[in-house]
Design a protein around this nucleic acid. Structure first.
Length: 324
DNA sequence: AACCTTCTCAACCGCTCCATT
DNA sequence: AAATGGAGCGGTTGAGAAGGT
């Protein structure tokens, strides 16, 4: 049996909000607040709308201090860095960008920034760096991918998922084939969020919050076909150490990088974030999220992310380690 | 000017999480 | 412990705008 609908679908209005509806909702919330109950709010406010619709309208459009209009370069960098670190968790990104909503960021990423980023990625000089951290991908866990063709000429072990725990936890996988001519323009189609159970692409798996994608490119130089594959990834690796007093320190690492199997090169980087479990307070203080904006600013200011939205960290400045 | 295609983004849908009963 | 229901989240849709032919 399915769950009961949150409102009477037949009697609620759908579609764009009128100025009159906006005014009613705004007036009501400014006078009474939401009361912690969105479902009951529309009736009280005199609106023929679903409570969820009211909530969305308020959060994404009507509430004070919403920032509309173009995203700045700094915001671009924050979004890219966060995407590399945490994947498509738009609400967390929104928390780091005052005035921006998760919906805004999601739309912006899907329609503009993703393309902009990929255009930057495929022209990176870092792709020509030597492959140094192949062990990052190594693990003893076997997993059969439907197709390994794109890895045939690489040292990457495609039977080695980034995470040893391939499970039902969702991952964020992006795969596309694209052709480009001369200008190396990429187009990235809408990206499905898929489970390990129905993966269809030869991709590696990252842990809970990670993502990994691949882009096959074909370019034509003076009529000669040239193809390569870029792999970009970001993921978390968490560890926790308990203390005798019941507190626990944990930390995780995030990676972001690009592998180019055509040139057999990999560039990767990671940042370490940490947190602390406070026994007295009884909860985790996740400094990784609280401080991520500062981390990102620092990342940017130290040229770890350059003006072309590269994710790569200057290898002389960042400590490296194996994940497995 | 008319038509077609592509892009944008507000809004919806359906799912998970979690508090309450 | 199980059922229920609201909040919140991310993916997707589709109407209107913008751009191209």
């Amino acid at each position: 049996m399915g769950r009961a609908p949150c409102c009477d679908k037949a009697n609620v209005k759908k579609g764009p909000w009128s100025p009159e509806e906006d005014r009613k909702l705004k007036d009501y919330i400014e006078t009474h607040g939401t009361g912690g109950n969105w479902i009951a709010l529309p009736q009280k406010a005199g609106l023929r709308r679903c409570g969820k619709s009211c909530r969305l309208r308020w959060l994404n459009y009507l509430r004070p201090n919403i920032k509309h209009g173009e995203f700045s370069d700094d915001e671009d960098k924050v979004i890219c860095a966060l995407f590399a670190s945490i994947g498509s968790r738009w609400s967390i990104m929104a928390a780091q960008l005052p005035g921006r909503t998760d919906n805004d960021i999601k739309n912006y990423w899907n329609t503009k920034l993703k393309k902009k980023m990929m255009n930057s990625l495929i022209t990176l000089p870092e792709l020509r760096k030597p492959l140094q951290h192949l062990q990052s991908f190594s693990s003893s866990t076997n997993y059969s991918y439907p197709s390994q063709s794109i890895f045939q000429n690489s040292n990457i072990n495609v039977n080695a998922p980034l995470s040893s725990s391939i499970s039902s936890s969702p991952s964020y996988l992006y795969s596309t084939n694209t052709s480009s001519y001369h200008d190396q323009t990429l187009s990235i189609p809408s990206s499905p969020r898929i489970n390990a159970a129905n993966r269809q692409h030869p991709v590696l798996q990252s842990q809970d919050h990670g993502f990994l994608g691949l882009v096959s490119t074909e370019t034509y130089q003076q009529g000669v076909k040239d193809s390569s594959t870029l792999v970009f990834f970001g993921g978390d690796q968490a560890s926790c150490s308990s203390n005798s007093d019941g507190s626990c320190h944990y930390e995780y690492r995030s990676t972001a990088g690009v592998y180019d199997n055509h040139r057999n090169n990999l560039s990767d980087s990671y940042k370490e974030f940490g947190g602390h479990y406070d026994k007295e307070k009884g909860y985790y203080e996740d400094s990784s999220l609280d401080s991520s904006l500062e981390e990102i600013k620092q990342l940017i200011s130290t040229s770890n992310i350059d003006n072309n939205l590269n994710f790569f960290v200057d290898e002389t400045k960042v400590e490296k380690s194996m994940y497995y």
